[in-house]
Simulated scan of single mutants.
Amino acid sequence: MNCESNTGMNPAVPVFETALRLWGGLGPCRTEEEDGVLLVSTGCAIADQNYALRTGEGDVKKMIKTAREFFASEGMPFSWWIPPGPLAGAESSLVAGEGMVYHCSPPAMALSLEGREGMPERRDLEFVICGNSSEADEWAAASLEGFGSGPEHLGAFMSFAEAMASGPSADKFRLVTLRSGRAAAGSAMVVLGGDTAGLFYFSITPPFRRQNLGSALLDFVLGEARRAGCGAMALQASPMGAPLYRGAGFADRGAFTVHLSDKSAL
Rank of each mutant, 00 (worst) to 15 (best):
V101L: 15
H103I: 05
R21F: 12
G89H: 07
V15A: 06
W81M: 02
E33F: 10
M233W: 03
M233N: 05
T7A: 15
C230F: 09
F200G: 03
S93T: 15
N10T: 10
P14W: 03
A228F: 14
I64R: 00
R182Y: 07
K62D: 13
K62M: 13
M1W: 12
G43K: 02
A225T: 09
L235T: 07
I46Q: 03
A156N: 06
R246S: 08
D171G: 08
F200H: 14
L26D: 01
T18G: 14
S238H: 10
D195N: 13
G146R: 01
R179M: 09
A232E: 05
E4H: 12
A165V: 04
A142S: 07
A136P: 03
K65W: 01
S134C: 08
M63C: 12
D195I: 06
L217D: 00
G97W: 14
W81S: 00
S215G: 13
A265C: 14
M158A: 09
A156Q: 09
M63T: 04
G56M: 03
P106Q: 07
P11E: 05
G155T: 13
P243N: 05
S187A: 15
P86I: 03
E91A: 07
G148S: 10
V13T: 10
Q236K: 07
F208S: 13
A88H: 02
L39M: 14
A12K: 00
S264K: 15
A237K: 00
H103Y: 15
M1K: 08
V13F: 01
F250H: 02
A163E: 04
Y51K: 00
C44K: 03
S92E: 09
A67S: 14
D252M: 11
G150H: 12
S93V: 14
P151K: 08
E152G: 15
V128F: 08
A110M: 03
D137K: 06
S149W: 10
F70M: 05
Y51M: 06
V95P: 00
